[in-house]
Write a protein that binds this DNA or RNA. Structure first.
Lengths: 220, 220, 220, 220
DNA sequence: GATGAATGAGTCTTCATTCAT
DNA sequence: GATGAATGAAGACTCATTCAT
């Protein structure tokens, strides 16, 4: 047990060195991706930007794709953390408040390295596991669906799968569209209000626009 | 004008030949893009697929980008034609019917060469001028805004810019999400119903979720 | 028929240009192979030695291996021509004369670019189709077998397959060994005599050393 | 000497450990060479296969070549041991029996790690000093020549250098050809018979094919 | 002596583009 | 205008070897 306490730090030193190299590479990849775009982000440039030799890059990442995939994974992880945390926090709130919070968080999540986010969203399909982003959407959809189920009585849409899918898609998309086309909107509270209103009205439903539920139920 | 009637056809022949070459190139580009993806679609391959020499390709298109840009332009043009035509046709209809029609058309528009569409959407950002697509969205937004203005009294949202922006973004996005994540939905009429419902409920507004308009007006 | 006589030369010019490039590449490959050995013969070096761009090299040969394979093919073709021609010429001669001639030709065949030959023999296993050289041996074996069959009555070995195999292998090997270890021998007529003697004695056979044939037959 | 009896085992332990590391490296090299071929056998792979760090590998072998050379040396040593032992054992036997035994041993020698043998034979020229192999042949030739000299009266070939050279070359080559082209033959006793017959007939000589000796002598 | 992270020269290969014919 | 051979910059990736710990 007490036999080799001295080697442990040495091992750690080594591990830390590796860790530092990997971190430098991921950071450099993100930077180069933002600066040059995927197509012009060569492994040599990335290695140089990381202050690391090209050989070291390949010691840790078997290909350019793997490198980008790792950056994506990390970025998505960060976004999902934000979303997951928020959805948990929101679970007990009534629809209207929950919706506002969700939209707010969605926008907030898009504030994490927005330039990197944009590049990744645009280039992701090319990286083998293009399901990355879709996976986020699917997970978010599942979480929302669970929430809707718990609040079944407040929901005026019959098909909860559909409801969750459309809610997530549209919030995601409106946020995205705002990021791309109306960046100014992101800082206006009105924007949150409107997007939340859109979702809430849809989810609450009403007898007139949704033929899915019998009138008497919708009217109750 | 009457001077060389014999050359005119020849000139036409030449013009037609050029036109044919250009068409062949665009078609070949689309085909290769779908088959090989943007990264593996080389100009040499495209020229070969078009049955045209690489030299001729560069006679008509100064660069690979120009070629892809032309394909994008054409594809977007086709989609916009569909959308524009539909919005005109819809102009006189009441909100609920107009919305249904618009959604239907949006989905239909995504049925034009869906594989090419997907590749283009994925790669457009890399070709540089993705303003093309944004232009489409902006034009669509403007058209919708005009419609909303004409039907001002049916609309429960204060800010028509916002209303048009969110309506277009969300319909566009839900369609898109369905194309990517739930292709099966595209054939289900329910899908059109739901998306239309989402938009209509938002645009009609209601006293409870939108503080912008007095309750009685919203209820009318 | 007489329609486009003018284009023919142009096409030829183009074809000849290609042909010249290919020839230059093959010659350069042989030269570099001899000078640097397979491992240090890079495609860039070869292209440079051929006075051709690296791009052109890959226009005609999809890989380094293909290039080397072509050189091998060509070299083997030349050797086989010599051998085949000789074997045909020899077909009508009695064993002893035929053997002498065959040995002489074998040695002669090894005088075609001997340095290249050495490199190729040594490196060939690495080039996908390593059967190249073996194919030569197999063809030679088949030709010799046919000869032996025709001269069945002069042959004292029961199994003609075995006889042909051993005859070809040993002549080939002795020649090869001489090339590598006793180059001086190649110019001595004695060498031809001895090698021929070795083969002849074996093929003629004798009652004492070969148990394969009954004594009376061997004695006839 | 008696001073530190305790360190002696430690030193031995150290020496043994070195020895073990070297052995592990040689064994790993052989294994990787067989598994991956020379080109894909990297020093890193070998170190890993040996369960040794790459640093340690370079402690014992200054270069990849040195490593492979050591493997060759060892393999050739093993083969030579077999051959040497056999030739000694055979020294007192008459030609026919000696020849059979020699051929048998030659084939047996090729059964020592045949896959490694093949890789080495193919790659040795590239490792630079192929003198190793030539040395083997030269030593074998010298031993055979000594034998022939001792049995001068049984030999019908004038030039013993030539006789030894051709005998060794051809037996070596036929064995080799069989390994490469007719592996099945190696297990057939007939093969040994025939190869031995070939050598014996040559060495015994005869009046008709070798003008060197008078007919009556050859006939005795 | 051992370790293994780091190095970087050098390899093969692709592809947009040019230009002589 | 058409052709297609030629170009070469640039990219991804390997691996023998070094050296700080």
């Amino acid at each position: 047990m007490a036999r080799r306490p001295a080697t442990s730090p040495r091992k750690n030193a080594s591990q830390e060195r590796s860790r530092a190299t990997v971190d430098a590479l991921l950071a450099a990849t993100a930077r180069v991706l933002v600066r040059d775009g995927y197509d012009h982000a060569s492994t040599n440039k990335i290695a140089e930007a990381a202050g690391v030799s090209i050989g070291s890059l390949y010691q840790y990442f078997p290909s350019k794709e793997a490198l980008v995939a790792a950056v994506i994974e990390r970025h998505i992880g960060e976004m999902m953390d934000v979303v997951r945390t928020s959805l948990v926090r929101v679970a007990a709130l009534p629809l209207r408040e929950a919706a506002r919070e969700l939209v707010r968080v969605m926008i907030e999540a898009h504030r994490i390295e927005p330039k990197l986010h944009r590049v990744l969203v645009e280039q992701i399909p090319r990286v083998g596991n293009m399901e990355h982003v879709e996976r986020v959407d699917e997970e978010a959809t599942a979480l929302v669906r669970a929430y809707l189920e718990a609040r079944r009585d407040e929901i005026g849409v019959e098909d909860l799968d559909m409801a969750a899918f459309l809610a997530v898609s549209s919030v995601e998309a409106m946020t995205h569209a705002a990021v791309l086309r109306r960046p100014a909107l992101l800082s206006e509270p009105r924007f949150v209000d409107e997007v939340a209103a859109l979702v809430v009205r849809y989810l609450e439903g009403d007898a007139a626009t949704s033929g899915a539920r019998p009138a008497m139920l919708a009217a109750e």
